[in-house]
Design a protein around this nucleic acid. Structure first.
Lengths: 263, 263
DNA sequence: CCCTGTGAACTAATTCACAGCG
DNA sequence: CGCTGTGAATTAGTTCACAGGG
């Protein structure tokens, strides 16, 4: 992971001319809405036998990075951006960005760049964020609180739509726009709202039990913050974020004999 | 990332025989302490010109995973473990584990397996955890609180040794074994304790300023939870964890047309 | 020209397959 | 035998280099 390269390319910046650096949502900005995926990576029945081709995980992880950079640019009044400019702002290389964006369907105009509105709409669409994505949060402790409020101010797309906690004292409290519900309602609420994405922010001892409930309720994409490896039925994905592990790994780079990162 | 494969190998389990599944720290467990690194990957001056060979990032990220599995095994009274057993518990492949462990110096006995105590000591040593690693935490909000208490019960090696917050109302409060200090003390405390590792858990708007201070104070390994890309002087590493991005990426896998994970 | 899109070359990482040793 | 350690083969991912369109 090579952060920080600064090739200093990108001559002229394509900002919206006219007024100051206003958000510029004027009539010059054509509507781009709904599903824009021309993508070839999620073939419907194309490439012969086997499973449909899907975007590699590494690329999926980069899409939100683009989205953030694009958001900043848009807020600053840009309308068009080049892969070089994006590279500078994300720490990735421009070729990589072009590869990714081309894989999403290849919008972008040669000699010019990518239109922000098209790009944002496309990426959001690929990520499935074009329509609301409800998320369940289980555990309203310190971490759960932090998560629920993480993007309190900003627009955040996968929006936390239901919060559960085992502590009866917390049930009923408002948190980040939702109300904390008791655990017994988990199955019903998740099913009713068709929630497939869930965040596990409970103590390690409770995590497996919670995961089981979630899986049974139909959640098949989990984000687990508890420091345990969950065993899950096939077909359920689980992404683990373990703060302690994260720190342990970083400790390596703080060893006195590990050289500083490259240029 | 293929989680969940279960090749179901691993015949006999090498538990300590004798009593029941007791922690078995008896006299049969020889002391393994201090630095055990026979590792070849951090050569002192070996391979000709250029920079010393260091462990690839992907491998560094796996070491804490091993550490956790090993901790579980040890708690259950195991003394020896095979790569196959570890594979089953971590979701990695046994070859990969052997490659990693061999790269750390290749302890482990052919036909038998790896001794838990040796393995744990070695990995900890490679990660630099053999001696205490102090960490600074900046920001005692919801997230900071969660982080400070994350491992309140368990032994955690990179231990949070200093906490800072800009809010005068919080200064003086105890949190996870430390006391929250005012931001002005950051430079002095970090320097005095020789802290190189820091966690940024402040609002996005304050993150860059905090990062600058930390870098100036000598912290060169940062774990940033604020949703901003920080610009840092060369030589400073920064690992970003952005909860919102994490969710955005996961949303992809919850798309109705994305097939479930492989076998 | 400028900047995208893409085959080709390269590099890194994983998996295979088996030699080697308790 | 069983399980580690490791070269060889394979696969995935990145970078290079340039063709191609506005």
């Amino acid at each position: 992971m090579r952060l920080g390269r600064s090739p200093r390319p990108a001559g002229r910046r394509h900002k919206a001319q006219g007024g100051a650096a206003a958000p510029a949502p004027g009539p010059g900005t054509p509507e781009v809405q709904g599903e824009v995926v021309r993508a070839a990576f999620l073939a419907d029945g194309a490439p012969a036998a086997g499973r449909a081709r899907l975007l590699p995980d590494v690329a999926v992880k980069r899409l939100p990075v683009y989205l953030r950079a694009l958001g900043d640019l848009r807020a600053a009044g840009w309308e068009i951006v080049s892969s070089a400019e994006l590279a500078e702002r994300t720490g990735l290389t421009s070729e990589q960005i072009r590869k990714d964006l081309a894989a999403l369907g290849g919008f972008g105009t040669r000699g010019v760049g990518y239109r922000l509105d098209v790009l944002v709409a496309s990426i959001r669409s690929v990520l499935g964020l074009a329509r609301p994505v409800p998320v369940a949060l289980v555990g309203a402790g310190h971490l759960g609180n932090a998560l629920a409020r993480y993007n309190e101010g900003r627009r955040q797309e996968p929006r936390i739509g239901a919060i559960f906690d085992a502590d009866p004292a917390k049930v009923g409290e408002a948190l980040g726009g939702s109300v904390i519900r008791p655990m017994d309602e988990l199955g019903a609420v998740v099913a009713a709202q068709g929630i497939r994405l869930a965040i596990i922010a409970v103590p390690a001892a409770a995590a497996q039990e919670v995961a089981d409930r979630l899986a049974r309720a139909g959640c098949d994409v989990l984000l687990n913050f508890a420091p345990v490896r969950l065993s899950l039925p096939p077909g359920v994905r689980c992404h683990n974020v373990d703060l302690a592990m994260e720190l342990e790994a970083l400790a390596y780079y703080a060893r006195p004999d590990v050289p500083p990162p490259g240029p």
